[in-house]
Simulated scan of single mutants.
Amino acid sequence: MIPLSILDLAPVTEGSDASRTFANTLDLARNAEQLGYHRYWLAEHHNMPGIASAATAVLIGHVAGGTSRIRVGAGGIMLPNHAPLQVAEQFGTLASLYPGRIDLGLGRAPGTDQAAARALRRYYENAEEFPADVVELLRYFEPAEAGQSVRAVPGAGIEVEAWILGSSLFGARLAAMLGLPYAFASHFAPASMVDALTLYRREFRPSARLSQPHVMLALNVVAAETDDEAGRLFTTQQQAFVRLRRGSPGLVPPPLASARAFEEWCTPVERAGVDQALSCAVVGSSETVRSGMRAFLEIHRPDELLLTANIFDHAARVRSFELAMHAGTT
């Protein structure tokens, strides 16, 4: 079986707060480490009440400090929001504290709306500078040279595993050109997945960091004791997606009474949008998840899977990842 990893959006549920979210994040990471998950990634988002991972590097340090073996990283850092030197310093610091365990996934989207982008003092047009920013950032991790005017301290000469993230052909082409591993956001934007993987594998150029193409695909996996219960738990993520599309994101909502109740909660057009965006999802009992994951792997042939599950109840979320690991290894 290929390595399985976790993408955590640090969900803030209705009736809870960020402090409880961070405690849950660490608890899930510790369980993931015991279960044998390979990586634990956190994603940068801003101005989203239901997502508490805005200070991504800080939260990575929290998780890495509370675990001992699992790789911890960003899935990802939205580089248009940051100066490359600052990111190199942050992740050079993390890799100095937790050597051999830190991943840096880099994304081109701002991870927020235009108002928040302005508040960050970085602007949307900087996304066009993404390739140059990535090259600059990676250079800061190379050994410092005599007379170098600017260096990352710490950062220079420190090992940080860098990835390109994407949901379109742009990221696939850049990852191939730079010889970097590629993670595709199939968990919410699957439309270009097949074309992006084909392009990346065809155009990949070996580099000092990577000798051959390496792909990780994100997959929504919600597992429970029965198909009906898993479908009920999945309504939390479905509701959150619709609310985002309506322009009213909020705290993560509790699940509805059943999967059928979601069909009555939203309009047919909204339901069609959810079905398309979340089409890369496996929801059900252990057996259903096992067969679904195997089918996904046989079709797309990734080198790793990045599982995500936006489940309201923390205990049910931990249990879902436990069942998913069991399904993926038996």
Rank of each mutant, 00 (worst) to 15 (best):
P3Y: 07
I6A: 00
L9D: 03
S19V: 13
N24T: 08
N24R: 06
L28M: 03
L28N: 05
A32W: 02
E33D: 02
P49I: 12
G50M: 08
G50H: 08
I51C: 06
I51W: 02
I60P: 00
I60E: 01
G61F: 01
A64Y: 01
R71H: 12
A74H: 00
G75I: 01
G76T: 03
P84H: 11
A88P: 04
F91R: 01
D103W: 00
G105F: 01
G111N: 12
D113N: 08
Q114G: 09
A116L: 10
R139L: 09
F141C: 12
E145H: 15
A146N: 08
V150F: 11
V153C: 03
P154H: 00
E159A: 08
L165M: 09
S167R: 06
S168V: 14
L169M: 13
F184M: 08
A185L: 10
H187W: 12
A191S: 14
A196K: 12
A196P: 15
R201C: 02
R202A: 07
R202W: 04
R205I: 00
A208C: 02
V215D: 03
L217R: 09
L219H: 03
V221A: 01
T226P: 04
L233W: 09
S248E: 07
P255E: 00
A257K: 13
S258M: 04
F262K: 10
E263L: 11
W265P: 07
C266Q: 12
P268T: 07
E270M: 09
S279Y: 14
S279Q: 15
V282D: 01
G284I: 11
S285I: 05
I299T: 15
D303G: 13
D303R: 07
D303I: 04
L306S: 06
L307S: 03
N310M: 15
N310R: 14
A315Q: 12
S320V: 11
E322P: 00
A327Q: 02
G328H: 03
G328Y: 08
T329D: 01
